[in-house]
Nucleic acid binder design. Structure first.
Lengths: 223, 223
DNA sequence: GATCGCATCATACCTAGGTATGATCGCGGC
DNA sequence: GCCGCGATCATACCTAGGTATGATGCGATC
């Protein structure tokens, strides 16, 4: 809501991070080695509590998670992470999983669900898919955040006018609806165009759609 | 592409159909009875071939499918149905499934994956979810189809003008780009508005977005 | 209490959009 | 060969959009 993100500063577009959560130190070590061998960064955790208590990088990444963990279930952890604003794609692993568990995980949006032992290549494929999805999510989120940041700079009146204008109303109709003169509406409208960084109504409509902002509902159409 | 669908004629909004595919006649019968008991219509098939060779209703529905079937695998059938334009949500059943199979099915978009024996209530819940998803898909598809039908009535020139106009260009810019006079562009533009059934540029932009039609790419923005 | 941002409106002026009338041209079908 | 449709353009006229200048009022902040 308040983080600008703006024009995506240089930062470090370098490598992605794979967050590994497993109570078995041996598994952690071998996954660590596997991912590092293909140039990925890693973060190792022995329990969900450790992960929740740590400060995570905010770059691209994904989580590789054992379903059966001390304390919380891996499936529950998914919800807790979302509540904390952490939204990495998750790959589940399990030694003693069953079909209902895997189906539940996939329904909840997991990228993959691997039974131990798994082939290294399967894990790498899953991580690749997860990182791709994360990159796409991030791109979409950043674009939307930029638009929202612009929208935040609008005053209440300007937002109101923007809603009506992008709904397709003429200036005089907007003026009538909210009890203003047409000239004032034009001024607000001009401010909206400037603050939203658009030069055409078409682009403003697209940004409004991305934000889900539209006052009146279509009365047009009908063949 | 050519089916209008128009303003959704009355037709029979009545009940949805559940398509059951299983080589076990006993299972077919018990599922048939289960679904009919809650007011759903059913179609029974003993093999994928039977299903592919039959004429299906085009109303709302879903498919309940055994993974292991004579001839084709249930998972392959999914692809074949899509190629035939049949796009019902699928619920898989299996007696001898494993985790990779269930994960593969879920990745391919299945609604659920139930191990036999399953509780009747679990199946009913899955079917309910599947029918809800189908209803939503149908509503979206119908809306998009109506817009596409309007778009089909446009001449080549009108589509070209629409693309540029919804990209945010002024009439004179469009005229310059495609080598016409501004007056001619205005005429085409007026025809587009009429044929697309919209009264405002905002609505035209939204319809163009739904169709993925936009000639030039944004040069606006930048804070 | 002075200042600043926001909102309001008027007058004036210019550009852009929209439509009607009328006309020409080319192509494909009856 | 005639007709209809699409495409093209001109003139004319009206509406809508956009901006600049200038001015007032109100609430919050310093």
């Amino acid at each position: 809501m308040t983080r600008p993100s703006q024009a995506h500063p240089p930062a470090t577009p370098s490598s992605s991070v794979v967050i590994i959560v497993d109570d078995d130190a041996g598994i952690r070590a071998s996954l660590d080695s596997l991912f590092r061998s293909v140039g990925l960064e890693t973060r190792l955790f022995g329990s969900p509590a450790e992960l929740l208590g740590s400060t995570l990088p905010d770059g691209p990444g994904c989580i590789v998670l054992d379903v059966r963990l001390p304390g919380v279930s891996g499936l529950d952890l998914q919800g807790q992470l979302t509540r904390q604003g952490i939204n990495y794609p998750i790959i589940f692993m399990t030694g003693h999983g069953d079909i209902p568990m895997s189906v539940r995980a996939m329904k909840a949006g997991a990228i993959d669900f691997l039974s131990k032992p798994f082939r290294d290549q399967d894990m790498l494929d899953a991580v690749t898919a997860a990182l791709e999805r994360d990159a796409q999510h991030r791109a979409e989120a950043a674009a939307k955040e930029d638009i929202r940041a612009q929208y935040e700079t609008l005053t209440a009146r300007e937002r109101e006018v923007m809603g009506h204008v992008t709904a397709g109303l003429m200036n005089k109709q907007v003026a009538g609806l909210i009890g203003l003169s047409e000239i004032t509406v034009k001024i607000h409208r001009g401010n909206v165009m400037r603050k939203m960084g658009v030069k055409s109504l078409a682009d403003l409509v697209r940004k409004a759609e991305a934000l889900g902002v539209s006052q009146t509902r279509r009365t047009t159409d009908q063949t």
